[in-house]
Computed example of a mutant assay.
Amino acid sequence: MAILLSLHPLLRRCGLAVVLLAGGCAPALDWRDVAVTDGLVIQFPCRPERAERAVRLLERSVPARMSSCDAGGLGWSVTTFDVDDPGRVSETLRHLRGRLAANLQAEESQSRAAEGPGLTPQQEARRLLLSGRSADARPVEAEVLIAARGLQVLQVVAITRGEPVSRWRDRAQEFIGSLRPAP
């Protein structure tokens, strides 16, 4: 019995270590459906914060809504822009693509047409991989979808700073690929 009592504090410390280690193994990503526009949802891997403001796009003030969060080594965001003229949707898609690349001091290492359920077919809608540098000169990579749903333009981004997005590519693609019509 004396041996068991003397081991008790050691067992208690080992038990605490096991609990702490198990907590460190908890998943960093907690996927959940989030409405990003009327009629579209996406699976965010964390609880996004929301912001809304007017931004300047193509010489006009345009309402913009952003949902974003950081988890698992990536920044996750969806920004929607309301375009008031159907003739400006393609131009806005092209502009956002160039503006994002410029902000990241990035070049497109991959680009393909973007299609998906709930999206309006547009020639300028793209899925991209951008590789560049942040304002503080750290390497950045971003998986990006720039697409439209009617007169709403969407910019969906999973971005990493300092380590290659290839380590997270499956999760970034899962995020972007989860954009779909609301049930």
Score class of each variant (00 low, 15 high):
residue 1 M to A: 12
residue 3 I to R: 15
residue 4 L to V: 10
residue 4 L to F: 14
residue 6 S to N: 05
residue 6 S to Y: 07
residue 7 L to G: 09
residue 8 H to I: 12
residue 14 C to A: 10
residue 14 C to T: 09
residue 19 V to M: 09
residue 19 V to D: 03
residue 20 L to V: 01
residue 20 L to P: 05
residue 22 A to Q: 05
residue 23 G to H: 08
residue 25 C to N: 12
residue 26 A to F: 07
residue 27 P to F: 04
residue 33 D to T: 11
residue 40 L to G: 05
residue 42 I to E: 11
residue 48 P to G: 04
residue 51 A to D: 14
residue 52 E to M: 02
residue 57 L to N: 04
residue 57 L to C: 06
residue 62 V to P: 08
residue 63 P to K: 03
residue 64 A to N: 13
residue 68 S to G: 08
residue 71 A to N: 08
residue 71 A to D: 01
residue 75 G to K: 00
residue 75 G to W: 00
residue 76 W to I: 00
residue 78 V to T: 13
residue 79 T to A: 05
residue 80 T to P: 03
residue 85 D to F: 01
residue 86 P to K: 10
residue 86 P to G: 08
residue 90 S to G: 06
residue 94 R to D: 07
residue 96 L to M: 10
residue 96 L to V: 11
residue 96 L to P: 09
residue 99 R to W: 11
residue 100 L to D: 05
residue 101 A to R: 05
residue 101 A to Q: 04
residue 102 A to T: 13
residue 104 L to Q: 00
residue 105 Q to M: 11
residue 109 S to M: 08
residue 111 S to H: 10
residue 116 G to T: 09
residue 118 G to L: 08
residue 118 G to K: 06
residue 120 T to G: 13
residue 122 Q to G: 11
residue 127 R to Y: 13
residue 130 L to W: 04
residue 135 A to W: 00
residue 136 D to W: 00
residue 138 R to I: 00
residue 139 P to A: 07
residue 143 E to T: 12
residue 146 I to C: 07
residue 151 L to N: 10
residue 152 Q to H: 08
residue 153 V to W: 15
residue 161 R to M: 04
residue 166 S to F: 13
residue 169 R to F: 12
residue 171 R to W: 14
residue 175 F to C: 09
residue 176 I to G: 00
residue 178 S to W: 14
residue 179 L to V: 15
residue 180 R to L: 15
residue 183 P to W: 02
